[in-house]
């Protein structure tokens, strides 16, 4: 099975706006997801400077942007990616 890439932005804007919580993602994804998820910490992904996107912190799941990212939102997105 192809792995799901989860890029977490730890750039300053994202980190300040609540991204620090996403450090816990690795411990929070259940056993069922652990082996299929590839967590990639990133420096500023440039999204915070783009007016088009709504709200830091940002995470990219298989290239798709999750804004105002929380652990729950990201896990949800990962599950939807797997189902597809």
């Amino acid at each position: 099975m192809k792995k799901v890439d989860v890029e977490i932005c730890f750039g300053t804007t994202c980190f300040v706006m609540g991204g620090s919580h996403l450090q816990e993602l690795e411990n929070r994804i259940g056993k069922d997801l652990k082996d299929i998820v590839n967590i990639i910490p990133q420096n500023c992904m440039g999204l915070c400077k783009d007016e088009k996107y709504n709200q830091a912190p940002y995470v990219r799941v298989n290239g798709q942007i999750v804004d105002a990212a929380t652990i729950e939102k990201v896990i949800d997105k990962i599950k939807r990616e797997i189902d597809e």
């Binding site: 750039g11 804007t13 300040v16 420096n43």
Partner: peptide, 8 residues
């Protein structure tokens, strides 16, 4: 954030 300062 307001001044777009990136620590890294």
């Amino acid at each position: 954030v307001a001044r777009h300062i990136e620590l890294s």
